[in-house]
Design a protein around this nucleic acid. Structure first.
Lengths: 190, 190
DNA sequence: GCACTTCTTGAGTGTTCGTTCAAGCTTGAT
DNA sequence: ATCAAGCTTGAACGAACACTCAAGAAGTGC
């Protein structure tokens, strides 16, 4: 057995960044080889195909996103405040120089036409995130209200993920988000 | 001179549909040849490159979107009512079987990494649409308020364009949009 | 009917794509 | 020292990619 095996988690982190920036079609296996430092053979032995690699990247991103979200919501003094902080962070992200939206949103739009396994996974991950919000909100609102608030949240999150590319000033976006989600306790975040 | 020249507008309509569904990278020139019925040589003589074709498709889509928007807003009894109708139509579209979001939004996310001419065009077209909303709203609100309402509108529009893929029931989406844009005269649309 | 112009044609260009696999290498066990 | 196991290697594969161009076809002016 060879001693030095490559670090699977590190490889997944590398391909996630690459696919996130370039998309499934936009990132070639040659670029994956370069980004990971591995040779084609190793990649195919470990992940089976380009699609397998993308699947691993999606799972990694989704798990990390969900973990960050749960952590933010549980650290906050109230669920509402946690949600506000999460949204403000997204707006902040969208102002960065190398901003590249949300990996899941980009994947959803790129892969929608294919209708394959990847697209199904993406939809599942996004729906899970919505359910997560709905569950947390279900603790303080009636079920119907929680579901509708969660939908409104997702609408705004997806909105930020696209709107961020237009490069408008931070304050305008924040004001628009606050106006659309006026039921959140924004005053607690100042 | 050959008698029968191809119908440029029809060709652009065909490639728009193809690129809209498949994306820039997802649609090959072979598919363009099939979709238009033209041969590669004719396409390259008329449009120069795949990028040129995409540029033409983007322009066609943007012009048509803006025309539809203006028409909707001017036919309505008030600007607010027109905007409501426009949003409701978008939600309706998102429920269709072959739904493929908004061509500009998809292009923005796919081409953001490239940073080329296409991406610049897309950003311009999207910003034009936002300005259009802001101008119409400027007729009934102070400039600052109009700008912020326009931003909130764009946030919801982009949100609908992505959220539509999750396949939730129409009424939930409509309720969320109404909740986020409660300053619009929704009662006038029933 | 004969050049001339202009558009159409589609086989063919070189390149890059995702993927494979036989050979090589590094270890632990004998 | 030798072996077997299995990860690593990278050259090579056919297919598909965006794109080209010499030849053909159809109309116009004479």
């Amino acid at each position: 057995m060879t001693r030095i095996q490559f670090d699977r988690e590190q490889v997944i982190r590398d391909v996630t960044r690459l696919f996130w920036q370039q998309g499934f079609g936009g990132a070639s296996m040659q670029m994956v080889v370069k980004a990971t430092g591995l040779k084609p053979g190793s990649l195919y032995l470990a992940f089976g195909s380009k699609e397998g690699l993308y699947q691993a990247a999606l799972e990694h991103y989704a798990r990390q996103s969900q973990a960050t979200l749960c952590q933010t919501l549980e650290q906050a003094t109230s669920i509402g405040e946690g949600i506000c902080r999460q949204l403000l962070r997204m707006v902040e992200e969208s102002g960065k120089v190398d901003y590249c939206s949300c990996f899941l949103v980009k994947s959803q739009l790129e892969l929608a036409a294919s209708g394959g396994d990847l697209q199904h996974s993406v939809s599942t991950y996004l729906t899970e995130i919505e359910s997560l919000y709905a569950d947390y909100l279900g603790g303080i609102y009636p079920p119907g209200q929680a579901r509708q608030y969660a939908a409104s949240l997702m609408l705004h999150i997806f909105g930020i993920r696209v709107y961020g590319y237009l490069g408008h000033e931070r304050d305008l976006i924040v004001a628009a988000v606050k106006a659309g989600l006026s039921w959140l306790p924004w005053a607690d975040c100042d």
